[in-house]
Simulated assay, not measured.
Amino acid sequence: MRQDRQRLDKWLWFARFAKTRSLAARLIADGYVRVNGQRAEAAAKPVAVGDVVTVAAAHATLAVRVLGLGERRGPAPEARLLYADLSADAPADPPAGSVTRG
């Protein structure tokens, strides 16, 4: 595989979206992972910096942009450097003109 790409299951494991690489592969096989809006069909699907990975986990659906390719499964702060959470860009306040009850 090219140096600017990494297997999806490995990246999910390095970024701590799965506790083991085999669990990452199962998430992919069961259809819970998308890359750039397309369902990932295989654990070996290559991901690159800039790709958007969406993971439909049991507790939430997360959309992240790949910022880096990992070299190892390190501590959580190191893993957090591999991606940018796109849901953090969502506005915290309701849009102007929306009706809220309080």
Rank of each mutant, 00 (worst) to 15 (best):
A18G: 09
D30Y: 00
G102Y: 14
A48W: 00
T61C: 09
A43F: 03
L27D: 14
A90E: 15
A88H: 09
A60G: 02
A15P: 03
L81A: 15
E78Q: 14
A42H: 13
Y83W: 15
L12G: 07
V47I: 13
R16F: 01
R16K: 08
V99E: 15
V55F: 13
V52M: 10
L8H: 02
A24K: 00
Q38S: 12
T61S: 11
G102S: 12
G31P: 05
R65K: 11
L86K: 05
F14D: 01
G31E: 03
L67T: 09
A88S: 14
L86G: 06
L62N: 04
P75T: 11
S22E: 13
L8N: 02
A79V: 03
V35E: 10
T61L: 10
D93H: 11
L69C: 02
P95F: 12
A63Q: 12
L27I: 01
R101D: 14
A29G: 15
A43H: 01
R65I: 03
L62H: 12
L82G: 09
A76W: 08
Y32T: 01
P46L: 15
A58T: 10
R39Q: 10
A43Y: 03
G97Y: 09
F17G: 06
G50P: 03
Y83L: 06
R39L: 14
A60W: 03
R7P: 06
K45A: 11
A96Q: 13
R21N: 07
V49P: 00
V33N: 04
S22Q: 11
L69F: 04
A92S: 12
R21W: 02
R72I: 00
T54A: 10
G70A: 07
E78F: 13
D89K: 08
M1K: 06
D9F: 09
T20S: 15
G68L: 07
K10E: 14
A18S: 15
L62M: 13
D30R: 02
P91S: 12
A18L: 04
A92R: 14
P75N: 09
G102C: 06
K10T: 13
S98R: 06
Q3L: 10
D4R: 09
A15I: 06
L23K: 03
A63K: 05
F17M: 07
T54N: 00
S22R: 06
A18D: 11
A90M: 11
R26V: 10
Y32V: 02
A96Y: 11
P46Y: 07
A90N: 12
V49C: 05
A57F: 00
A90K: 09
W11P: 04
A43V: 01
V55C: 14
L8F: 05
R73W: 07
V64H: 02
N36F: 04
P75R: 10
D9R: 03
K19N: 05
W13P: 00
T54C: 05
A57D: 12
A96M: 09
A43W: 04
R16M: 01
